[in-house]
C-alpha cells in the first residue's frame, strides 16, 4: 500500500514539474526546475548531500550521504515537513551565497574541515550579513541537524537509513529476536 502511494505521489510530482517546466519555457524562465527530486533542485541536492555528510560523517560505517538522508529530507519536505520548505530554500541559498562571497566556491567544494567550521559558525549563531538575519543561521542549522539524525536513525520507510545501516551500526538487529525485527523497507 505504502509503496503504491509513494509511486503515485512521485508520478504526480513529476507531472506537475513537467507542467511547471512548460510554463517556464513560455515565460522564458532561466532555471528549468526539472529535477529527479520532489522538492529540492539538483543543485540543492549536492549541497544537502554535503550537509548531511557533515552531521553524520562516513567512518568505518556509511555516512549521511550514503544512507540516503538527502532523500529522507526531500521526501519529508513534500510531506510532514512541507512547513519547512521556505526555510530550506532560504537557508540553502544563504549557505551558497555566503560561500561564493567568502571563498568563491560552492559549499560542497570546500575541504571537509572548512565545511565543519562553517556549520559550527551557523550553530553558534555567528553568521554575518543580511542573508542570515532573524536567527536563520541557528534555526536552519538545527533543522539540518535534527532532520539528518532522523533520516539516518529513523525507519528506512521514510527514505533514509538505507539498508538499515544505522540499526546495523548500533547492533540493534543482531542477533535476530523473534517479534522484534519488523523494520520494513
Amino acid at each position: 500500500m505504502e509503496k503504491q502511494t509513494k509511486l503515485t505521489r512521485r508520478h504526480f510530482i513529476a507531472l506537475s514539474v513537467l507542467g511547471a517546466g512548460g510554463m517556464c519555457l513560455l515565460s522564458r524562465c532561466t532555471n528549468p526546475p526539472l529535477s529527479p527530486w520532489r522538492f529540492i533542485t539538483t543543485q540543492e541536492s549536492t549541497l544537502l548531500d554535503a550537509l548531511v555528510e557533515q552531521i553524520i560523517p562516513t567512518d568505518e560505517w556509511p555516512g549521511g550521504h550514503d544512507a540516503g538522508v538527502t532523500n529522507f529530507i526531500d521526501m519529508q519536505l513534500t510531506g510532514p515537513y512541507t512547513r519547512y520548505q521556505e526555510t530550506y530554500r532560504k537557508g540553502l541559498q544563504a549557505i551558497q551565497e555566503t560561500c561564493k562571497t567568502k571563498f568563491q566556491k560552492r559549499f560542497e567544494e570546500l575541504p571537509f574541515e572548512k565545511q565543519t567550521q562553517f556549520l559550527e559558525t551557523m550553530e553558534a549563531g555567528k553568521m554575518e550579513g543580511k542573508l542570515w538575519k532573524n536567527g536563520l543561521d541557528r534555526q536552519f542549522f538545527r533543522l539540518i541537524r535534527d532532520h539528518s539524525l532522523q533520516g539516518f536513525y529513523g525507519s528506512p520507510r521514510h527514505g533514509g537509513n538505507k539498508n538499515n545501516v544505522s540499526y546495523k551500526m548500533m547492533r540493534l538487529d543482531y542477533p535476530v529476536i523473534i517479534g522484534q525485527n519488523r523494520y520494513n523497507n
Binding site: Q54, I56, P57, D59, T116, L119, M169
Partner: peptide, 23 residues
Amino acid sequence: PYSFTGIRPPGSASWGTDHKAFQ
C-alpha cells in the same frame, strides 16, 4: 536510535564524527 541521539553527557557534540561514534 533517534531518541538516543539526544542523550549525551553535558558539553558533548550534538553532531559529527564524535556524535556518531558515541551512538
